[in-house]
Simulated scan of single mutants.
Amino acid sequence: MEEKKVIISTSALTRKFPLAGGSEITVLNGIDVEIEEGTLTILKGRSGSGKTTLVNILSALDLPTEGKVFFDGKEMNAMSEHQREELRRYHMGYIFQAVALVPVMNVYENVEFSLRLAGYGKDRKERVEECLKKVGLVKRMYHMPEELSGGEQQRVAIARALAHKPKVVFADEPTGALDTDNGLLVVKLFKELVEHEGVTIVMTTHDPSLMELGDAVFEIEDGVIIGRNDDSLRRIGKNI
């Protein structure tokens, strides 16, 4: 079977934060990961394990204290803030536990607004409708966020994140505020988007019931990867 292209990788990634009194805390310690294109990769860990810090670095929202992170072969550490901003705007999408839909905009306007921010200049109406159809909400496009269930709001957030055709979508605890059934539906939707649209999704969670849906699962504890599970992991050089 043909090997997939690695879209994101890190080398000896470490992130420390200063504490009062001049001391510091190490949140990530020597992380090596490779994330393949066209996969659903899950970063698993309890609250405080470091998974959100890791996804913030992988998604160019933060920088490591030590080590390197690469996106599509380019070292993000070496980029200027403007270059990282361009990377986020055009090549990355974001989904969070708090869906953060604009309350005064309807479903269509929320998704269309993300296209405006990304400079998506043509056929915006068709693209919005296409994305809402993918998440099963085209009939709700003129509803306000307050008229939607929690699961529907999260699906709007997914459509918004996909609209500008990013290479990678980062989802930080996207099911954390949902019940089990709606959480499972969201992750199954992720899986369908990976398989049929070719998008790469990197998702954090602490819910063990979602693990089996991931193409790759990295378990993080106290800032260290303690477990990995997928067919491609044997190709990653360093054993942790």
Rank of each mutant, 00 (worst) to 15 (best):
E37V: 10
R15H: 12
A118W: 03
L132I: 01
N56F: 07
F17V: 12
V168I: 10
G227A: 02
A118H: 02
L189G: 06
Y142P: 05
F218H: 02
M1N: 03
K74N: 14
L185T: 09
A78D: 11
V69Q: 11
K74L: 12
S209W: 00
D231T: 12
E192K: 13
V224N: 01
P145I: 08
A78P: 13
L117F: 07
K139Y: 11
T14S: 13
E219L: 00
S232R: 14
M79P: 11
V33A: 03
D179H: 13
M79F: 09
G183V: 09
K165F: 13
V55K: 02
L162M: 04
S47W: 14
N77K: 13
V99G: 06
R88Y: 07
T52W: 03
T53M: 06
L61H: 09
V104S: 08
I7T: 09
G119A: 08
R127K: 05
F190E: 12
H143R: 04
M92Y: 15
V55I: 10
D179S: 10
S47N: 15
V27S: 04
E75M: 14
A157P: 02
R15K: 13
L58C: 12
E173G: 04
H91V: 04
R15G: 11
L19G: 14
L19T: 15
L87I: 06
A78N: 13
A60Y: 13
K139T: 11
G22P: 04
G30E: 12
L115R: 00
Q83N: 06
R15C: 14
L213W: 03
F190S: 06
L189P: 01
L13C: 12
K238P: 05
G73N: 15
V217A: 01
A20Y: 14
V69E: 15
K16C: 10
T180H: 15
H143Q: 14
K16P: 15
V102T: 11
E173L: 05
A177R: 13
K167L: 11
L54R: 04
G151H: 04
I158E: 00
V156P: 01
M211R: 06
H196M: 05
L115Q: 00
R155G: 09
E112F: 02
P103R: 11
R116C: 05
H164T: 05
E126N: 10
G150S: 10
E2N: 06
A171E: 02
G67K: 14
F113Q: 00
G151A: 14
T14I: 15
F96P: 00
P145N: 08
R155P: 11
V138F: 12
A163R: 02
P18A: 12
E221F: 00
F96I: 00
E86M: 07
I226A: 00
E130G: 03
S59L: 12
K125P: 08
F170E: 00
G30F: 09
V217W: 01
H206V: 00
K191N: 11
Y94T: 03
M92H: 14
V6Y: 02
A163M: 01
Y108V: 02
Y120N: 07
A78M: 07
G21N: 06
I42T: 05
G38D: 07
G214C: 01
F71H: 14
S11D: 09
G183P: 03
